[in-house]
């Protein structure tokens, strides 16, 4: 469970978020909506520990009963997906995934595991490809796989569907939601489109 308690974020004199408390259960996807500049992305940045020095924040965050708001990003075990896929351009598709795969999978098993993951996502044979040769939808899928391979305990989605066209969007959305359900982790989805909200999912307006 991801739990935010009494969060307050301000930028100099401007108060962005006041007294926000939110609990997201395992397997649940909570949708966050609100006008631009209201602080949705800032909230996600705070959750992963990458708040710009221009902001000050107070409040607590717990992930599975463990307080994480004082930890550096790399120890929080929270994955994030942005609007852009942000695949590392100097690595192949396989290299990007291998970067996320934990070190305990060793030797030949690494490549086998990654090829299996790619195949399940309908991307078999893409291991050696350069990310720039992929279509937008394919890149988006690889970036989801990358985030999930690191076995995060929670996932944040910062408008990950915004760049995709309507048909692709539908497919990709259900792909992401299925993966989250499979892992049974809490997820927070920031979006501008009400249609992105999963059925019966909770909606929070900032």
């Amino acid at each position: 469970m991801l739990s935010i308690q009494q969060l307050r974020i301000q930028q100099q004199q401007r108060l962005l978020i006041e007294n926000l408390s939110l609990q997201v259960a395992a397997g649940e996807i909570v949708t966050l909506m609100g006008a631009s500049g209201v602080g949705k992305s800032t909230l996600l940045n705070w959750l992963i520990g990458a708040l710009s020095p221009a902001f000050t924040a107070s409040g607590q965050c717990y992930l599975n009963q463990k307080q994480i708001d004082h930890l550096p990003t790399e120890q929080r075990q929270i994955g994030i997906l942005f609007q852009d896929d942000l695949l590392f351009p100097h690595l192949s598709v396989g290299g990007n995934l291998a970067f996320a795969l934990p070190a305990h999978v060793k030797g030949k098993a690494r490549k086998q595991k990654l090829e299996a993951v790619l195949e399940q996502a309908g991307l078999s044979g893409f291991y050696p490809r350069d990310p720039s040769t992929l279509s937008g939808g394919q890149r988006a899928r690889v970036s989801v796989l990358r985030a999930l391979l690191a076995q995060p305990r929670a996932l944040l989605l910062d408008e990950p569907f915004a760049r995709l066209d309507a048909e692709l969007r539908q497919q990709f959305r259900s792909f992401v939601f299925e993966e989250i359900t499979k892992l049974n982790i809490p997820a927070l989805l920031v979006t501008h489109d009400l249609a992105d909200r999963p059925a019966q999912g909770r909606l929070l307006r900032l």
Partner: peptide
């Protein structure tokens, strides 16, 4: 901006500042 976001992604995958720097930022 995308370079900054890439460092966030690498860190959210569990890599520290130093490793993120040399493995992700440096080659680019």
């Amino acid at each position: 901006q995308w370079l900054l976001k890439q460092t966030w992604v690498a860190q959210s995958l569990g890599y520290g500042l130093w490793q993120t720097g040399w493995q992700i930022l440096f080659p680019q």
